Simulated scan of single mutants.
Amino acid sequence: MTSNFSQPVLQLCYENLNGSCIKTPYSPGPQVILYAVFGFGTVLAVLGNLLVMTSVLYFKQLHSPTNFLIASLACADFLVGVTVMPFSMVRSVESCWYFGAKFCTFHTCCDAAFCYSSLFHLCCISIDRYIAVTDPLIYPFKFTVSVSGICICISWILPLVYSGAVFYTGVYDDGLENLVSALNCVGGCQIVVNQYWVLIDFLLFFIPTLVMVILYSKIFVVAKQQAIKIETSMGSSETESSSESYKARVARRERKAAKTLGATVVAFLISWLPYTIDTLIDAFMGFITPAYIYEICGWCAYYNSAMNPLIYALFYPWFRKAIKLILSGEILKGSSSTISVFSE
Rank of each mutant, 00 (worst) to 15 (best):
Y316G: 04
K333A: 11
S343Y: 06
E344T: 10
P317Y: 05
S328E: 00
A313E: 02
A313H: 07
E330I: 10
N308K: 12
A313L: 14
A301N: 09
Y302K: 14
L310A: 07
A322I: 02
S343T: 08
E344F: 13
I326H: 13
Y303L: 11
I339L: 15
I323H: 07
R320C: 10
F342W: 09
I331Q: 02
W318G: 01
C300T: 09
W318F: 03
I339M: 13
S336A: 14
L314K: 04
A322G: 04
L325I: 05
N304H: 14
F342L: 05
T338Q: 10
L314G: 00
P309T: 05
I339K: 14
W318M: 01
L314Q: 04
R320A: 06
F319P: 00
L314R: 05
F319E: 01
C300S: 12
I326D: 05
K321N: 11
G329K: 06
A301I: 03
P317R: 04
S305Q: 03
K321D: 09
F315P: 02
I311Y: 02
W299A: 04
A301G: 07
L327Q: 00
F315T: 15
I326W: 15
E344V: 14
A313F: 15
W318Y: 03
F342K: 04
P309M: 07
A301Y: 12
S343A: 13
N308D: 01
S343D: 12
F315W: 07
S336I: 06
E330G: 09
L327E: 00
I331T: 05
R320Q: 12
Y302S: 13
E330M: 15
V341H: 02
L325N: 02
S328K: 09
F319H: 09
N304E: 00
I323P: 02
W318A: 01
N308Q: 10
S337H: 11
I339Q: 08
S343F: 06
I331G: 01
A322Q: 04
E344I: 14
S305I: 03
I323A: 05
L325D: 00
L327I: 05
I326N: 09
K324C: 13
